[in-house]
């Protein structure tokens, strides 16, 4: 009889970090495919680049920290970070965006804080925020939706654009890129146009923006699958979406000319993506039921505030980072009542 290796329980958990991360990646697939359909193959290049840099930095950091490489390289957490980051980049962003973004995400936000599970801030959003602050111009160059492009860029042209950081010969940035609907609303408001006038533009689809609203739907589908698989739970997404809706409705009803439709806020930009995939990051979020509701609501409030009054068209990265700071506090003050203790 061998000496006791472990106490009860003697049976293993049926889940693992790797399985959780793999399911998140799988749930992103419909969104990624829709993204490719509407905005071209650029996003695929960005994902590949981000993965490449993420795993390079992950490998170097783990080696430097003398951590067991096999366990940690297989946990897929770097892959999730990389994909989430790449999905937040404009499809034609220069190649070094991924380099800088992943450097900050993996080395600084993740490993300098202690590696997997220790990062106070969402690594993908740290990488994105660094780029947003340092190179805001890049984020004005989004590809237009496929329906508005007569002859889309070929794979070769896309690669050349990304690696030379110049538009293909004979074309200008303006010819191949366009401001996002949210950006157009912002500039429209700045030049005194009414929302209804701005929305006459071709990029605005039914409510969220051509292409964008459909990508949001596919993200939501992946998110619902994650909910069904119990990888994520309802509180954070519901809090984000419901708060967004509830906060924008009064503004819209009060002055529909100056404020976009509530559904526009939900279906454009990264709202749905954030609700299901970014704000639900467990490590940098809250673990208590009430904490998760507050976390989601806080993300939505800050995001809307930045959209309404800030200098960035979409403020999700900053909203997430600010709420990350509050997560330990939320955990502290929303601790559940222990069974058998008075309320």
């Amino acid at each position: 009889m061998t000496r006791m290796a472990a106490g009860a329980p003697h049976i293993p958990a049926q889940t693992s970090v790797q399985k959780v991360m793999a399911q998140v990646l799988l749930a992103l697939l419909p969104g990624i495919l829709a993204y490719m359909y509407y905005f071209g193959v650029g996003i695929l290049v960005q994902i590949t680049l981000a993965l490449l840099f993420a795993y390079t930095f992950e490998y170097l950091s783990l080696s430097a920290r003398q951590q067991p490489l096999r366990n940690y390289l297989c946990d897929l957490s770097a892959a999730v970070t990389a994909v989430l980051f790449a999905l937040s980049l404009p499809p034609l962003a220069p190649w070094w965006c991924s380099l800088i973004g992943m450097l900050f995400a993996i080395v600084i936000a993740k490993h300098l804080f202690g590696g997997l599970g220790q990062n106070r801030f969402n690594p993908a959003m740290v990488g994105l925020a660094v780029l947003l602050i340092s190179f805001p111009r890049i984020f004005t160059h989004w590809s237009p939706p496929a329906m508005l492009v007569d002859n889309p860029l070929s794979m070769l042209e896309v690669l050349r654009t990304i690696f030379t950081t110049q538009p293909p010969p004979g074309m200008s940035w303006d010819a191949i890129t366009q401001a996002t609907p949210l950006d157009q609303l912002r500039t429209g408001a700045a030049t005194g146009l009414l929302v209804t006038e701005v929305r006459q533009g071709p990029v605005f689809g039914h409510f969220g923006g051509l292409g964008w609203e459909w990508i949001a739907n596919w993200y939501a589908l992946g998110g619902l699958w994650l909910l069904w698989r119990r990888v994520i739970h309802w509180r954070v997404p519901v809090a984000v979406l419901l708060t967004t809706f509830m906060l924008t409705t009064p503004f819209y009803l009060f002055d529909p000319d100056a404020n976009p439709l509530p559904l526009q806020h939900i279906f454009s930009g990264a709202t749905v993506f954030v609700a299901f995939f970014i704000a639900t990051d467990p490590v940098s979020g809250s673990a208590t039921p009430r904490g998760q509701l507050l976390f989601g609501a806080g993300v939505a409030i800050i995001m809307l505030a930045i959209r309404r009054w800030g200098v960035y068209p979409d403020g999700v990265a900053f909203a997430i980072l600010v709420m990350n700071m509050f997560a330990p506090l939320l955990d502290q003050y929303t601790r559940p009542r222990v069974f058998g203790h008075p309320r």
Binding site: A6, H10, S16, V17, V20, Y72, G117, A287
Partner: peptide
């Protein structure tokens, strides 16, 4: 049987 040596860091999943 489970093998307790193979544990990873806590990811605060809740």
């Amino acid at each position: 049987l489970r093998e307790p040596q193979q544990s990873m860091p806590c990811i605060n999943c809740g």
